[in-house]
Each structure stands twice: as C-alpha cells, then as structure tokens.
C-alpha cells in the first residue's frame, strides 16, 4: 500500500492543483498527452495497435454509457448492443443512401439511437430486475435479427463503403487520423458522464438505484428519470455505433452486434465495477486488450470471458472500481486521523 501511495499521491496532488486553475485543466492535459498516441504506437509496434486503440475508444464510450443506466440508475439492461447497432446502421444508411456527410449522419444516428432508447426504456417504467433484463434482451436481439434478415440494413453481406468523415479537407481516412476523432469523442463522453454524475440528475439516478420508493417520496419523478437514464445511455451507444460504422474500412455486419459483443461489454462493466466510471474505462481497456491478445485461442474465448464474469460476480462483486474506492476511502480516513486532509480528491 505504501508503494501505491507513493505513486498515487503526487498524481492526485497534481490533479488537485490543476483543477484549482480550471476544472477542465486536467482533462485538457490528459487529452493533449493522449493525442500523439497513434504515432507512439505505430512507431513502437505497428498500425494494428492503432486500430486496437480505436476499438478501445469505442468500447470505452459504450461502457461509460452502459454504466449510466446500469451503474447510476440500477436498471438491468442487456440489450445495449441493439442500441449500438441502431446507431451504426442508421448513421451508415443516412450517409450511404442520402449522401449526407458524416457531420449530418452522425447526429442522426445518435438521435435515432436515443429514440430507440426511449422504446427500450419504456418497459423500465413498469418492470424491474429480471423482467427488465428479459425485455431489453428481447429488444436487443430483435434488432440484430431485423438487421440480419432485412436487405436494406445489409442482411448477410453487411453495409460496405460507408464514407469516412472529413473536416475542411482533412479526411479521417486512416486509423491514425480516425483516432483523433475517437479520442475527442471519448474524452468528451467521459467528462460528460462525470458531469451527469455530479449533477442533480445523477443524484436522482443514484437515489433511484438505492431505493426507488424513498426516491419517489423525495419528489423524484421516477419513471421520467429512468427513461432519461436510458436515453442518455442510448445516446452514448448511438455515438459509439456511428463512430464504429464510419471507421475507415467503412464496413458493418450484423455479426458485429452479437451476444458475444454483449458479453464482452458486460464483462467490461462488471470487471470495472458496476457504477464506477474509471473502473469501467479500465475494464474496457483491459478486456479489449485481452480479447485481442487471445484471438488465436478464438474457440476458448467465450469460456474464458464467461468464466471470468461468473468468478468476478462471485468473489469480486465491486470489480476494480471497488478496489480504487477502498484505497481512496482508506486514505481519507488515515488523513482525517492524522489531522490533515490531503491525498483523497
């Protein structure tokens, strides 16, 4: 613990000092530090790792979104991949068939996913727990089957040649260039998620998670906030989907949205700790890298992922986020006992 303290304390102090300048300052610094990552990666390894970084960004967006509805609001949803698919397909269709540029099709994709989020969220007004899980799983799987059997949505061939975005002559046509778009979206996504968590809306979500009846007694419009949580998380999923669809190969297929993607997504959230934003981000990074490094054991992957999910739920129900929280809470108490309040943010 002392080693960890020695590493973490200067970091937290630096973050504290930066936040004192402006609350966005640490975010900007991290963003600027992460921007040249593709050059480091392609210099040290090769382009494939840049692609991996892109995938991680997309999954971070998805995890952060899922955490809002699942972690903050406590609604069990398993159909998140369906929303991701809706975002991807609608954005791709708008740009393929209407010839709209990315900057038009992206918001449309996000909005369509948001509307779909209302539909997925509607059962949550009347259902809880297992019922809700069933309803969302049914909706998510219906979306995939719809895509798989409808020619317009690119049934078995998938949608090919989705144009890559460009801004003033700068075309995001390689993984390195697309990374700038993704890291920007991801940083904004994480920051917004923190803002939501700290706002009255986020506190209402958490009140619903802790005790629905008590929340409604305290004047929180429970159905409205549940729906809002679903819509926000659907917007995240739609953004991730649209960004995925326009990524340079410009190709989506219904096999990108199967149950295995859902399992990976769930594993990320569970590993990171349900309801912990940084935990979710770390979970997304770890799981994507492990998923990628074990590609040669393709046939054993579901076994590995499923088993680690089961064991995590059994023995480490709060995930990595729980470990982080415990560390900071311990630090805070030690600090309070020593009569000073540094360290913990």
């Amino acid at each position: 613990m002392t080693v960890a303290t020695a590493i973490v304390r200067p970091f937290t102090q630096a973050v504290g000092k930066l936040s004192a300048v402006h609350r966005l300052a640490p975010w900007l610094l991290v963003y600027l530090l992460l921007l040249p990552l593709p050059y480091v990666l392609s210099g040290l390894f090769n382009d494939y790792y840049v692609y991996l970084a892109n995938r991680i960004c997309i999954f971070i967006l998805l995890t952060v979104g899922l955490n809002i509805v699942k972690g903050f609001c406590g609604q069990v949803t398993i159909g998140h991949v369906g929303l991701y698919a809706i975002g991807a397909v609608s954005s791709a269709l708008v740009s393929l068939h209407l010839g709209a540029p990315f900057w038009v099709s992206f918001p449309i994709g996000v909005l369509v996913a948001g509307v779909a989020g209302i539909i997925v969220g509607l059962p949550s007004v009347r259902l809880e727990g297992a019922y809700l899980a069933l309803a969302t799983l049914g909706l998510g799987e219906s979306v995939r089957i719809m895509i798989a059997v409808t020619p317009l949505f690119g049934s078995s061939t998938g949608l090919i040649g989705i144009p890559t975005p460009e801004i003033g002559g700068f075309v995001f046509d390689s993984f390195e260039r697309y990374y700038y778009l993704l890291i920007t979206a991801t940083m904004i996504g994480i920051y917004l998620s923190f803002s939501i968590l700290r706002s009255a809306t986020g506190r209402a979500f958490m009140a619903i998670r802790e005790d629905t009846i008590a929340a409604s007694v305290h004047g929180i419009n429970v159905p409205q906030y549940k729906l809002l949580a679903f819509v926000i998380s659907a917007l995240y999923a739609g953004a991730a989907g649209a960004l995925f669809a326009h990524m340079p190969p410009g190709y989506i297929h219904h096999n990108n949205f199967t149950i295995i993607e859902m399992v990976t997504l769930l594993l990320m959230v569970v590993l990171g700790g349900i309801g912990h934003i940084w935990g979710g981000v770390i979970g997304a990074i770890i799981v994507t890298i492990i998923y990628d490094q074990t590609l040669e054991f393709y046939f054993y992957q579901p076994l590995l992922f499923g088993l680690s999910m089961v064991i995590l739920v059994m023995f480490m129900p709060r995930g990595i986020g729980g470990v982080i929280d415990r560390y900071f809470v311990t630090r805070r108490f030690i600090g309070a006992r020593e009569g000073k309040t540094d360290g913990a943010p």
């Binding site: 295995i260 399992v263 992922f305 499923g306 999910m309 739920v313």
Partner: peptide, 11 residues
Amino acid sequence: MIICGFGMSVV
C-alpha cells in the same frame, strides 16, 4: 445473478 447466469450460458 443475472450477469452470472449470462456468463454461465456462454461458458
């Protein structure tokens, strides 16, 4: 339990 059952089904 839901997550656990889900993982078990994949396994």
